[in-house]
Simulated assay, not measured.
Amino acid sequence: MCEAREQEIKNVEKYPHSLITILAGGTGSVKLVRGLYNEFKKNIGVISNVADNFWHYGLYICPDVDTIIYGLSNHLDKKRGWGIKNDTFNFLNHMKLLGEEAWFNLGDKDLATHVLRTQLLKEGKNLSEITRLLSHKYGLGIPIVPASDVHYETNMVTKDDQVFHLQEYWIKHKGALPLKDIVYKNVKLAKISLECKRMLENSKLIVLAPGNPISSIGPIIAISGMKNILHKHRNKVVMVSPLISNKAFSGPSEIYMRAKNIQPDIRGLINFYSKISANMIFDRVDKKEVEEKIGTTSYPQINFSYTDILMNNSRKELALASYIISEFCQDRR
Rank of each mutant, 00 (worst) to 15 (best):
K41W: 14
I44W: 15
V46K: 15
N49R: 12
N53I: 04
F54Q: 01
W55N: 12
G58W: 04
L59H: 11
Y60T: 00
Y60A: 04
C62W: 05
P63N: 06
P63F: 03
D64P: 05
D64G: 09
D66E: 13
T67E: 08
Y70V: 03
G71Q: 06
S73L: 03
H75T: 00
K78N: 13
K79A: 06
W82Y: 10
N93W: 08
N93R: 08
H94S: 13
H94E: 09
K96C: 00
L97M: 02
L98V: 07
G99R: 05
G99N: 07
A102M: 04
L106D: 13
D108W: 15
K109L: 11
V115I: 10
V115G: 02
R117C: 15
T118C: 09
T118P: 10
K122A: 01
E123S: 12
G124Y: 12
G124A: 07
I130F: 05
L133W: 04
L133C: 12
S135M: 06
Y138W: 12
G139P: 11
L140E: 09
L140T: 10
G141S: 11
P143E: 14
I144Y: 08
V145P: 01
P146K: 11
S148Y: 06
V150L: 06
H151T: 07
E153V: 03
E153P: 04
T154C: 09
M156A: 05
V163I: 02
V163D: 05
E168A: 01
E168V: 00
Y169P: 01
A176I: 03
